[in-house]
C-alpha cells in the first residue's frame, strides 16, 4: 500500500547567539539585541530536512511548519516554503507572550490537535535557551511517544519507523509507531538550500498582518492567490484554557537577570604558582565563564 503522511515541523525564530562577537555586547555589558540577527533555529533546519526527505520518499505527503512568535516570525514559514514545505501556520497573539517551555508546548499542542499530523518533527533544542524541553512536553500533552536526539529516520515496516538516536556515548536504534514526536540532532544532515522555483512562487507569501502593514501593500494584487496567504492563528483560533497560555501559564518565573560584563582585552601574565592559578579560576567562576 502506498503511504503518505501529514508532517508538521515545529520551528522557532531565535536570536543568533552562536556568533556573539564583541560588538554583540554593549558597553554596559548588556546584550545588544540589534546586533543579533533573528534566524531559523539551526536544529529546526535539520528537522525540516528530515520532513522533506519523508516527503521525497512518500509521495503525496505534506509538510507544514508550525511556529509561535511575533508577526515577523512569518519569516520562518517563508523560509520553509522556499525549501520545499507546503504551508505553515504562525501562532501569534499577545496572549502567547512571556511563555516558558510549558506554556509554549501547551500552545503548540493545541494547534497540533487542530492540524492533526501523523508525524511531528522539531529540532532537539533552540539556541536561545538550549532547554530541549518543548519536544517532550508537546508529546506528553498529546499523549504521543517521543523519540529525541534522532539522527536518521530509517525504514518504515508494518507501520513502524526505525529511528537512529545519537546519544553522548553511542547510538540507539528504536522502532516506533505513529503519530509520534521526533526531535532531531544537529548531527543529522543539513537542510537543502532554497529552491529557485519555490523562491519565485512564494516570495510574496504574506500573513494578513503583513498585508495590512503598509510596506507590503505593493504586492496586494497577488494576495488573492490562496497559496500566498500564510495562516495566522490566535488564542481564539486554537481554543483551550486561556490561563494556560503565555505568562500566566508559565510555572517558571525569572527572578533575576545578570548581564555578563566583558572585560577590556588586556593581557595578564600569570605564573604556574598555585596562588595565580587559584585566583584565575576564582575570577573565571565569578565571571560565569566556567562553573
Amino acid at each position: 500500500m502506498r503511504r503518505s503522511f501529514k508532517i508538521v515541523v515545529l520551528a522557532k525564530q531565535v536570536p543568533d547567539t552562536r556568533n556573539v562577537g564583541k560588538n554583540a555586547m554593549k558597553e554596559d555589558g548588556t546584550v545588544n539585541r540589534a546586533a543579533l540577527p533573528a534566524i531559523f533555529n539551526p536544529e529546526d533546519m535539520n528537522a525540516l530536512e528530515q520532513a522533506l526527505r519523508l516527503k521525497d520518499r512518500f509521495p503525496g505527503s505534506k509538510v507544514e511548519l508550525l511556529t509561535m512568535g511575533p508577526p515577523r516570525a512569518a519569516d520562518i514559514i517563508r523560509e520553509g516554503l522556499f525549501r520545499g514545505a507546503d504551508g505553515g501556520i504562525l501562532l501569534t497573539d499577545r496572549k502567547f507572550a512571556g511563555a516558558d517551555t510549558l506554556a509554549t508546548s501547551y500552545a503548540l499542542s493545541m494547534a497540533l490537535k487542530k492540524m492533526n499530523p501523523d508525524i511531528i518533527i522539531s529540532g532537539r533544542q533552540a539556541i536561545d535557551g538550549d532547554t530541549a524541553q518543548v519536544g517532550p512536553q508537546v508529546a506528553e500533552k498529546l499523549s504521543l511517544p517521543q523519540i529525541t536526539y534522532v539522527e536518521e529516520i530509517g525504514e518504515l515496516c508494518n507501520d513502524k519507523f526505525t529511528l537512529t538516536r545519537r546519544l553522548d556515548n553511542g547510538v540507539e536504534v528504536v522502532r516506533t509507531p505513529f503519530p509520534v514526536v521526533i526531535t532531531i540532532n544537529s548531527s543529522a544532515p543539513a537542510c537543502r538550500p532554497r529552491n529557485a522555483k519555490y523562491l519565485m512562487k512564494y516570495k510574496h507569501a504574506r500573513t494578513l498582518t503583513e498585508e495590512q502593514d503598509n510596506e507590503h501593500n505593493s504586492y496586494l494584487p497577488l494576495l488573492s492567490l490562496d497559496y500566498l496567504r500564510i495562516t495566522e492563528w490566535s488564542v481564539s483560533d486554537v481554543g483551550g484554557d486561556e490561563s494556560s497560555y503565555g505568562l500566566s501559564g508559565s510555572p517558571t518565573k525569572v527572578k533575576k537577570i545578570e548581564n555578563i560584563v566583558l572585560q577590556a582585552k588586556e593581557s595578564r601574565r600569570l605564573t604556574s604558582e598555585d596562588k595565580d592559578i587559584d585566583e584565575l579560576i576564582k575570577e573565571l567562576i565569578s565571571l560565569h565563564t566556567i562553573g
Binding site: 546584550v31 536561545d128 535557551g129 510555572p251 518565573k253 525569572v254 527572578k255 537577570i257 560565569h288
Partner: peptide
C-alpha cells in the same frame, strides 16, 4: 543558569508549582 548563548545569567524560580 546561563541563557542567551551564555551572555546572561538567569535566576529562575517556580513559586506556585
Amino acid at each position: 543558569r546561563p541563557a542567551f548563548g551564555g551572555n546572561i545569567i538567569a535566576t529562575i524560580i517556580n513559586p506556585d508549582h
